[in-house]
Simulated assay, not measured.
Amino acid sequence: MNLHITNETSRLRAVVLGTAKSNGPIPTLEEAYDPKSKEHIQAGTYPAEEDMVNEIESVAAVLEKYEVQVFRPKIIENYNQIFTRDIAFVIDDKLVKSNILPDRDQEIEAIDHVIRQIDPEKIIRLPEEAHIEGGDVMPMGDYIFVGTYKGKDYKDFITARTNIQAVEALKEIFPNKTVKSFSLKKSNSIARDNALHLDCCFQPVGKNKAIIYKEGFLIEEELNWLIDFFGKEHIYEITRDEMYHMNSNIFSISEDVVISEKNFTRLNSWLRDQVMTVEEVPYAEISKQEGLLRCSTLPLIRD
């Protein structure tokens, strides 16, 4: 397999889509990795496996409609394998294995049948001290955008998934790219104040536009650089509640086709105003785990 990913919106040809089958029992509060999951565990509204399976299969149907080659993880009994974006990411022709939370190590093994189709020399493993998840990484042509948390209290946040050591490692692996990091707001307890990954508060769409939740960024200078990069007139700003419901976590099949959650009324209207085809799917149950469409897809090949 010849990997090729240089941006977020070129025509998608191959992707790994997560699975919700045999997702396991409802986690305890101690087992939850994010404040939104904790909210729903406490409220008794944590999503049912059947509902999540149906939601992911609705995405699979859209991908099939657009003739995208779809790989799926091998099923591990009683194990959450929805968010494939976390476990690896592709930049240019290289697949980088993420250093993620230790409890999730089996997830990468479940896509070994995909990884075996890739030239071993194109598979990168970061140093152990470089923590990173794919939701924080966005290839943007000559740039790589990376969400991170640089505070000395990094270890205190289970919601801080990508550290500065990973940013430096990417600079070494991709010396011809400009690696641009963005410090994100973190909270272990309040989901509306937590930008779990970069794609929870920002995502490029179309040819030159972006969805942004400004309050998800810790450093104003970094936010302003990002806005200037796209131009204010090309920015769609979402609210705190829209960020909570994961409005920035849609997924592009091409520059003019996106998959979006059917309840994102305001966003979907704006996307159509930009002359994009919006393929609406139900994904509200999966979003209760603080992840949405981009989180559950791992692109391998784009034109």
Rank of each mutant, 00 (worst) to 15 (best):
S22F: 03
K207P: 09
A48E: 13
E280G: 00
A110R: 10
S10A: 10
I164R: 14
A61G: 04
Y283T: 14
T297G: 03
S37T: 12
L298D: 06
L298P: 01
T277G: 02
Q165Y: 10
S189K: 12
K262L: 10
D153A: 05
F217D: 06
T297S: 13
D119A: 04
Q69S: 09
F89S: 05
N247D: 12
K74P: 00
L126P: 12
G231R: 08
K122W: 04
W225P: 03
T178A: 04
Q81T: 11
P282R: 09
G141I: 01
R272T: 13
K155G: 14
E290H: 15
E215Q: 13
N208L: 10
R11M: 08
Y213G: 00
M138T: 04
R13T: 02
K209H: 15
A210S: 10
I111S: 01
Y79H: 13
I87G: 00
V62P: 05
M140G: 00
L271M: 12
I212D: 05
V96D: 01
N80R: 10
E279I: 03
Y143P: 02
P35L: 03
T239R: 07
S269C: 08
E279N: 08
L170F: 15
E64K: 15
L29A: 03
E133F: 05
I301T: 01
R116G: 02
D256C: 07
D256I: 00
D273P: 06
Y236G: 00
A191E: 02
G231H: 12
M243K: 15
L267C: 03
R85C: 02
S187H: 13
D241E: 15
E133M: 08
K214Y: 09
F145E: 11
D93I: 01
E220F: 11
G18F: 08
I76H: 07
P47T: 00
P127H: 06
C201F: 06
M52E: 11
Y143H: 13
N263E: 10
K209S: 10
I164C: 02
E285I: 07
K150S: 14
E67H: 15
I111V: 15
Y46M: 04
K185D: 08
D112E: 14
I108K: 02
L29P: 10
Q42S: 12
V114C: 02
H131Y: 09
Q274P: 09
R302M: 01
